[in-house]
Computed example of a mutant assay.
Amino acid sequence: MKRFALTVAAALMAMPVWAVEIGDDGLHKEPFFHDTFKDMREDLAEANAEGKRLVLFFEQRGCIYCKKMHEEVFSDPDLNAFIDENFFAVQLNLHGDTEVIDFDGEALSEKDMARKWRVMFTPNIMFMPEEVPEGLSAAEAAVVVMPGAFGKGTTNDMFTWVLEKRYELDNGEDFQRYHARRISERANGSTE
C-alpha cells in the first residue's frame, strides 16, 4: 500500500502544472479563444469594438505541434494574458464542418475554407488587419501568417510585432530582423 501511495504521489508530481483543456472536437482550448458564429466580418467588428486585433487559429485533432504550442508556449501565463488582452482569437478546425463566412461573403465549411485560404498544416495563425477591403478573402487580407509551431520567444515576438503594426513601418526591420534584435536583447537582459 505504501509503495502504491508513493507511486501515485510521484505520478502527480510529474504532471504538468498547466492542464490543457481538450474540447469535444479534439482541439485544445485556451481562455483567449472566442466562441463565435465564425462570420469573419462580425468577428472583425467585435474585435475592433473591444480594441483588439482579430487572429485566426487553424488547428486539428491529434496535431502534435498544436499540443506542443498549447503545453509549452500558451501555458506561459504572461503570454496567455498578453494574447487575451490584445487579440480576439477565433479557433478553426482544419477538418471541421462548421460554416465559416469569409470577408468576401463566401460561406464554406471550415475544411473547405482552409483549402480556399491555402491552409495545409497546423497550427496556422492568421493575423487580420483592423479593416478588410470589400471583396478580399481572409487569406488575401492577412497582414501575416504564422505557419507551424514556434517557441515562446518567437510567438511572443510575432504577436508583439503585429500589435505594434511593425509590418506597416518602412524602417527596414521586417519580422526576421525584429525577432533577431529581440533575441539579442533578451540574451543581454535589455528587453523593453
Rank of each mutant, 00 (worst) to 15 (best):
V20G: 08
G62V: 04
F103S: 03
H34R: 11
G172D: 03
R3C: 12
P16E: 13
N48D: 04
Q176E: 15
N156V: 10
D84C: 12
D43T: 01
M120P: 04
D84Y: 11
D78I: 13
V17Y: 10
R186I: 09
W161M: 06
N171G: 01
F57A: 02
H28T: 11
K116W: 06
R41K: 15
R61C: 01
W161E: 04
A47H: 00
N188R: 14
D84G: 15
M40E: 05
A49W: 02
E21I: 08
R115C: 08
D157S: 14
N86T: 03
K165V: 09
T155Y: 00
N124D: 11
S75N: 10
K67I: 14
P133A: 15
G189Y: 01
V55W: 01
R118Y: 13
L108W: 07
N48Q: 07
K165T: 14
Q91A: 14
H95A: 13
A81Y: 10
R53L: 06
N124G: 01
V119A: 02
Y178C: 03
M113C: 10
S137Q: 03
D174V: 00
V119F: 03
K111P: 05
V143A: 08
E99T: 15
V162L: 00
N171V: 01
A11L: 12
D170Q: 11
N124L: 01
R182A: 08
N80M: 11
Y178E: 02
N156E: 14
L27F: 03
D78A: 15
M113E: 07
T36I: 03
D97E: 12
V73C: 08
F150M: 02
A114P: 00
D25N: 10
E185P: 07
P123T: 01
V55K: 02
T98D: 15
T154V: 10
E164G: 06
V119W: 02
A187M: 11
F58T: 02
G151D: 10
A5H: 13
G23N: 12
G62H: 06
H179N: 14
A9N: 05
P123D: 02
A19T: 15
N156T: 13
L54Y: 00
T160P: 02
E168N: 13
L56H: 07
E30I: 00
S109Q: 03
M113W: 10
E50R: 04
P147S: 04
G135R: 07
M40C: 09
P31Y: 06
G62T: 08
V132C: 05
G62M: 05
L94D: 10
V8W: 09
F32S: 02
F175E: 05
P123K: 00
P31E: 07
F87Y: 09
V144D: 04
I83P: 05
D112A: 11
A45E: 08
V143H: 09
P123G: 01
D78V: 15
F150W: 11
A142Y: 03
H95M: 11
L56S: 06
F57Q: 06
T191G: 08
L27P: 03
I22D: 07
F58H: 07
F175N: 08
M13T: 15
K52Y: 05
M128E: 07
D43Q: 02
T98C: 09
D170M: 13
V17H: 13
T36Q: 10
L94I: 08
K52V: 01
D112N: 12
S137R: 06
L169H: 08
A114G: 01
L136P: 09
E192I: 09
E140T: 04
D78L: 15
